[in-house]
Amino acid sequence: MKKLTVPHLLGIKYLQIKDLELIFETASQFKEIINRPIKKVPSLRDITIANLFFENSTRTKLSFELAEKRLSADVLNISVGHSSISKGETLTDTVKNVLAMKVDMIVIRHPYPGAAHFLANEVNSCIINAGDGTHEHPSQALLDAYSLIEKIGDLRGKKIAILGDILHSRVALSNIYALKMLGANVKLCAPKSLLPKHVDSLGVTISDDLMYVLNWCDAVNVLRVQNERMDINYFPSSREYNQNFGINKECIEKLRKKIIILHPGPINRGVEISSEVADSDNTIILDQVENGVAIRMAIIFLLGSQINISA
């Protein structure tokens, strides 16, 4: 019988390959369940989960909430705009108060890198990182890898490119860790100004030639330019970015093979990807969204099974 090697999901960095395999295996069973006429199972009926979102989110928040509800957990949603955080309460105080209401699990999204990790040390509860600043977004990387495996099989030796704003992307870092762990070759493609300083330590190759990268890869994960995190200008204009790093119909037609295109959303149509490509059959964006619920059900189920019954 298998279980996860970790009590929290803080980042892909802390997981082992057998954890990824167990999550994927369990997610496959949940995927069958969410395609049934009745999509709900009673497993987590005695668990309460709080979703603490200190940053805007549509997909991740809905996906987590749906996953929790499909597992029959009780769900609390707290968004920063409607809570006492705007009155000056600290993160630890907020979470301790939530836990005092007998909550068993916390899903947290926070603008500061390391927030989930900090919380895991501060409070006695199961923590799931739903994105911490520019650090990690483990559930997204898991669903990306799962969607890729579903499409192109075992990732060992496969060539995967990550294109766009790597510097500000937590999806990029988690994806690199997950893809490398699964044996893929990873190449980053971005303007030099949008690459992080420590990029050499990640065991990936880099290129700023979009057509070369697209011809090289089996699949490309296209990231959004995160204007909201940019305090200075990293490139002259959106138009220039689009000309050098945006994927459009012509790029795809020029390729010698068909490649798979992923996008974690939200899409800035016409910037990193054109509408024609985003809506083409090259993309698996909506598969990613569907798999997101199954992956999150698996994460919550597997972590939930470790929570002491008397807690």
């Binding site: 019988m1 369990t26 369940i33 009673p42 497993s43 597997l302 939930g304 099974s305 470790q306 929570i307």
Partner: peptide, 15 residues
Amino acid sequence: FFRDDFRRKKKPLNA
């Protein structure tokens, strides 16, 4: 996922 001994068994359940 329908068992009533979820979290009540020492061995984890695998689907």
